[in-house]
């Protein structure tokens, strides 16, 4: 090591949003590398969970009960909401441990703290994208055809990223102070699974519930995803409400996060 090398002007370090993206990607790729390289069945495990669940619901609702909800083929109908649900569910439940699991890293670096939540949204989102071939296989096998609305897929992805990040930013800092919230969040997610149009369609709800169901941002989101295969599922009113609620949640999430940040850093 010569002192000449030390005195040479430093290269400009990435700043602002470029640095943010650089670090976000660094942490996300670490997550994915750990997930896919530590076990022989890496990729299979990440799709096995939704596959088993879809299999169970498919069996119960097509073989056991007389089903009068959803559309044909039911397995495609089911997966087109179940896979995005896995993204939401995975990111939100992981965000309960966003700070606690990485406490040492959070304490020793000054990177923008929202990265600790956003990298979860991103890595679960990428896992979701990796699971799309599964639904494609079932669509081909089951004889479902794509509609033109598949062009709305990018919109659905953005909407879901906004919604998931918003919820994560609210949950992550609050869990640091109220550990009970971790269990409350898991319970709420289980409730939300049945309260959202995943195994049924929003149109199957009793008349009186339509109004209330619209406020669930997942209703509009799943209607957008499902429009790729089932035109009748698209409901612009639901999508509009979902977009509004998602943006609102993100705003609330950013405010809660900014307000609690200094207390979080002291606590962990």
């Amino acid at each position: 090591m010569t002192s000449a090398a030390l005195q040479a002007p430093l290269r400009e370090r990435a700043t602002g949003s470029r640095r943010y993206r650089q670090i976000l990607w660094l942490l996300t790729s670490r997550d994915l590398r750990v997930r896919y390289s530590t076990s022989a069945l890496g990729y299979l495990w990440s799709i096995l969970d939704p596959l088993v669940m879809a299999g169970i619901y498919w069996f119960v609702f097509t073989q056991v009960f007389q089903r009068d909800v959803g559309e044909e083929p039911y397995i495609v109908f089911l997966l087109s909401a179940l896979l995005p649900w896995m993204w939401f569910n995975g990111a939100v439940s992981d965000s309960t441990r966003a700070f606690l699991r990485e406490a040492k890293l959070v304490r020793s670096t000054k990177i923008p703290r929202t990265i600790w939540v956003n990298r979860l949204v991103l890595s679960k989102g990428i896992e979701f994208l990796f699971s799309i071939p599964v639904i494609a296989a079932f669509a081909i096998f089951g004889g479902a055809t794509l509609t033109g609305w598949v062009a709305l897929l990018p919109l659905a992805l953005v909407l879901q990223a906004v919604l998931t990040a918003g919820v994560g930013l609210i949950v992550a800092p609050l869990v640091v102070f109220f550990r009970d919230l971790e269990r409350a969040v898991k319970l709420t997610l289980r409730f939300l699974f049945y309260a959202s149009p995943i195994i049924y369609s929003a149109r199957d709800l009793p008349e009186g519930l339509h109004f209330w169901a619209a406020f669930n941002p997942l209703s509009g989101l799943f209607s957008l995803y499902r429009a790729s295969f089932f035109e009748a599922e698209l409901d612009w009113l639901l999508v509009g409400i979902s977009a509004a609620v998602s943006v609102l949640l993100l705003a609330v999430g950013l405010a809660v996060f900014a307000r609690t940040e200094r207390a979080v850093l002291k606590e962990i």
Binding site: Q22, L26, R30, K104, L105, S108, T109
Partner: peptide, 30 residues
């Protein structure tokens, strides 16, 4: 460059090589 709680940024399960890239990256190195 903070030499405080310096070992905090390292991840137990990753190799030395991966850890170098991770920690340096978190501190802003490309």
């Amino acid at each position: 460059a903070p030499l405080i709680e310096i070992t905090g940024g390292f991840v137990d399960d990753l190799s030395v090589r991966d850890n170098v890239y991770l920690t340096a990256g978190l501190h802003g190195m490309s």
